[in-house]
């Protein structure tokens, strides 16, 4: 295994060749913001929050998808990046109806804590206030499109870990929506195994346990690590 040495935020760090900047940074305590990435699932580079500056490159790079290189000099927290991140989160907050005070995930929401960490105390954009449905047709879970940021973690965990691929995205642009199967109500989905993995990985209050009230939703993501590790190490074979 080859090891590369590089500099992230003036700190000399090492990582395995082929690892993403994002992973190496986090291993060394440099927590680059993200909303679409979650350890154990493939990366899609959709949220653009983990973008970093790399010395010698004019363009910003999504650190979750950019492998480290020997001698690389990376900056993860410059004024330019902070400004971009703030704007991206503000865009999300204005895009749908993210009303923390009456959200099941209040107090345990990645969007909320990121907004706080970035110092967002108001949104400079006009709120779009789209009219979006809530799907509570499933016996145990609910999907509130008003809180969805289209990170597609649910789509990936269902496909890659559970193997059901119940979720996908329909529509395009601002009209994109997460759908189960071919757009049936979740409760009528034939592929859904009701495993609840999608609910556990959701960063906001979009997917929730039915019956949870305001600020009651809490998530447990421990399963991702042991399933992914067990598969890699073939711990169940023999």
């Amino acid at each position: 295994m080859n090891v590369n040495t590089l500099q992230i935020d003036r700190k000399m760090v090492t990582g395995r060749e082929g690892d993403a900047i994002f992973a190496v940074a986090w291993e060394h305590g440099i927590h680059i913001p993200r909303l679409c990435h979650i350890g154990g699932l493939s990366d899609v580079g959709a949220c653009r929050l983990c973008m970093v500056e790399i010395e010698g490159q004019k363009r910003l790079q999504a650190s979750c998808l950019t492998p480290i290189q020997e001698g690389m000099v990376v900056r993860t927290d410059t004024p330019r990046l902070r400004q971009h991140r703030k704007l991206i989160v503000e865009l999300l907050l204005a895009e749908r109806n993210h009303i923390c005070s009456v959200c099941v995930a209040d107090g345990a929401c990645e969007l909320q804590s990121l907004a706080a960490a970035l110092g967002i105390d108001h949104v400079r954009f006009r709120y779009r206030f789209p009219t979006l449905p809530v799907d509570t047709s499933h016996e145990r879970f609910g999907l509130d499109h008003n809180r969805c940021i289209l990170c597609t973690r649910c789509v990936r965990v269902c496909d890659e870990i559970e193997g059901a691929h119940t979720w996908d995205v329909c529509g395009r642009g601002a009209n994109s929506l997460i759908i189960s199967d071919l757009g049936e109500p979740w409760g009528e989905s034939e592929s859904c195994t009701s495993c609840g993995k999608c609910v556990q990985v959701c960063p906001t209050g979009a997917l929730f346990d039915k019956g949870k009230t305001i600020a009651e939703m809490r998530r447990d993501r421990g399963f991702l690590k042991y399933i992914v590790t067990a598969r890699k190490e073939k711990q169940w074979i023999g």
Partner: peptide
């Protein structure tokens, strides 16, 4: 209207 009834205590208290 259209919201789950479990949210009502928190929503209505506002």
């Amino acid at each position: 209207e259209g919201r789950p009834f479990h949210e009502m205590p928190g929503l209505m208290s506002r």
